[in-house]
């Protein structure tokens, strides 16, 4: 089986974030980068799938030089191959442009049976790239996956559980498929020291727009239909009221105030 996994480098949400307000993009240099937390589950699921069903894993990321770190981490976890997708023309890509570049890379890898990705990134938070990728590639779209029940590699079939509102949906799908995973599907392992040392010395191969056969006018800022026009700090919530006094009085006051909202039936 051939498994691909899409990984994104995101700013650590603990860190202060700086924007280029002119361009409406993030000043990524100013923040400590980490692997998108949801992609750690995707990577682990790829490793588990390889253990259970054999095959090889190709990890890809789209980003500048520093995003090589997330691929090095994947190499330390023993993925077989990595590619960094990078080109000046990719800068400013919206979700559709991003999914188009990722789709071109999946096609170039060739014969991919499953693409794993995280349900969303913790920076953009859009949560749609997996679904867009599946639509562009014509792969089975399997989003919000909480469990892989079985994979029948010979007959190219997969059965998964999806965590949707109010319960779990079980779906059977033909491979190839794009599987976007939620937190809790597994417990991501950590790389060992030997893996980290080995990965540190490895070359990270790059693919640019020409390598991928991507039309530069259809990606990056030029190819993106959505554009950020304003960035603002949300107004702080109104200063709250700390209810003080004897606990019985405080509870009495709070219940009155909440009942007054006319929400509780």
């Amino acid at each position: 089986m051939k498994i691909a996994v899409c990984i994104k480098q995101v700013p650590d949400t603990e860190a202060e974030i700086k924007w280029d307000t002119q361009k409406g993009v993030l000043k990524r240099d100013s923040i400590d980068p980490i692997t998108n937390p949801f992609d750690e589950f995707a990577l682990e699921e790829a490793l588990l799938t390889r253990e259970n069903y054999d095959g090889e894993i190709v990890a890809i990321t789209m980003g500048p030089e520093r995003s090589s770190d997330v691929l090095r981490n994947a190499l330390a976890l023993t993925v077989n191959e990595v590619h960094r997708l990078t080109d000046d023309a990719f800068a400013g890509s919206d979700t559709y442009a991003t999914a188009s570049v990722l789709a071109a890379a999946i096609k170039k890898i060739g014969d991919v049976d499953i693409v794993f990705c995280g349900k969303q990134s913790t920076d953009g938070n859009t949560g749609v790239v997996g679904a867009e990728l599946a639509a562009i590639l014509g792969f089975s779209p399997l989003t919000y996956v909480s469990k892989i029940r079985t994979i029948d590699a010979a007959n190219k079939k997969i059965v998964v559980e999806r965590a949707i509102e109010g319960g779990t949906e079980v779906i059977e799908a033909k491979l190839p498929a794009v599987v976007s995973v939620i937190k809790g599907i597994n417990e991501p392992r950590l790389p060992n020291l030997m893996g980290i040392r080995k990965a540190a010395k490895m070359e990270i191969p790059q693919w640019n727009a020409d390598d991928l056969g991507v039309d530069k006018s259809k990606v990056g800022s030029a190819g993106s239909s959505t554009k950020v026009v304003e960035i603002a700090v949300p107004p702080p919530r109104g200063a709250g009221e700390i209810l003080k006094g004897e606990i019985a009085d405080v509870v009495n006051t709070l219940t009155d105030k909440l009942i007054d909202l006319k929400v509780i039936k």
């Binding site: 749609v128 599946a134 989003t143």
Partner: peptide, 20 residues
């Protein structure tokens, strides 16, 4: 989950980005 899935896939089929 339903709204996001259909919105994303429809936008991709039409060849556009979307706002989520």
């Amino acid at each position: 989950t339903q709204g996001t899935d259909i919105a994303a896939a429809s936008a991709a089929r039409l060849g556009f980005g979307l706002c989520t």
